[in-house]
């Protein structure tokens, strides 16, 4: 299949009179690395919410692997391969790192519906959780509750939880937000190392990250797509420079 894995067709979202997403057409190809940029309040997180089902579009369609998923709930979309991370860390704070991963792996494998046999008997789920710890080099924190973890490590768990679901489309909402710059390279390395067959959409403010990572860039302004293109096209686009990059240059 050569068509897009994820497609938004004329997606709109209104909250009353407020238009937070306006007629968004968007395509993400298999294995593509795509960045979504735009000033604060442009509607980037709203777009992620619309794609993953946290919000339902007022108009338009969301299509995943050729199937219209506009009416599907979040959980059903996850089962079909679209997974997100959160800009504001959303983890199971009272559980340990390993237990956090167990939750996600148990959902993917279907183990989570088991009501009678102990969770510890699902050695397969534990082993897969351990393998994820290894990939993210979190082994030494396995036993720590999330709330005792430094923020940078929490951001790693944030991505590990998403990867535990073996997505075909991964939406990363500012994965390095709030991480001290001395530590952010760990997260960027992880993103660089994501399996090539996963289509990744990353929302990011740091232009170094965007241009290092993305093959294509979409610029969102006031809820609508201003322009889409390759990093070079975006960097040389006068309009983008004016509304977005220009801002950054002045700041």
């Amino acid at each position: 299949m050569t068509g897009p894995v994820l497609e938004a067709k004329g997606v709109c979202k209104n909250f009353g009179a407020l238009e937070v997403s306006r007629n968004i057409d968007f395509r993400l190809a298999a294995g593509e690395r795509h960045a979504l940029i735009g000033p604060n309040g442009a509607g980037k997180t709203t777009f992620v919410n619309l794609m993953t089902g946290a919000l339902t579009p007022s108009r338009g369609q969301v299509i995943l692997h050729g199937e219209d998923i506009t009416a599907l709930a979040q959980a059903q979309r996850v089962k079909r391969g679209i997974v997100r991370t959160f800009q504001i860390t959303a983890l199971f704070r009272g559980l340990t790192v390993l237990e956090n991963l167990y939750v996600a792996v148990a959902e993917r494998t279907g183990a989570a519906t088991g009501l009678w046999r102990p969770a510890g008997y699902r050695r397969d789920v534990i082993d897969q959780s351990l393998r994820l710890l290894e990939i993210f080099q979190l082994q030494d924190d396995a036993h720590k509750p999330i709330r005792e973890l430094p923020y940078g490590r929490q951001r790693l768990v944030e991505i590990a939880l998403a990867l535990a679901l073996e997505p075909s489309v991964l939406l990363l909402d500012e994965p390095a937000a709030g991480v001290p710059s001395a530590e952010s390279h760990i997260i960027l390395d992880v993103i660089d190392g994501l399996p090539a067959d996963i289509a990744v959409l990353i929302i990011e403010h740091d232009m170094d990250v965007v241009f290092r990572f993305a093959e294509r860039i979409t610029v969102l302004v006031s809820g609508a797509i201003l322009v889409q293109g390759s990093p070079d096209e975006i960097a040389n686009n006068a309009e983008v420079r004016a509304v977005y990059l220009g801002e950054a240059a002045h700041g």
Partner: peptide
Amino acid sequence: ENILRMHAVGA
């Protein structure tokens, strides 16, 4: 611990 995340892991 986090109902928002539970939705996002497909539960």
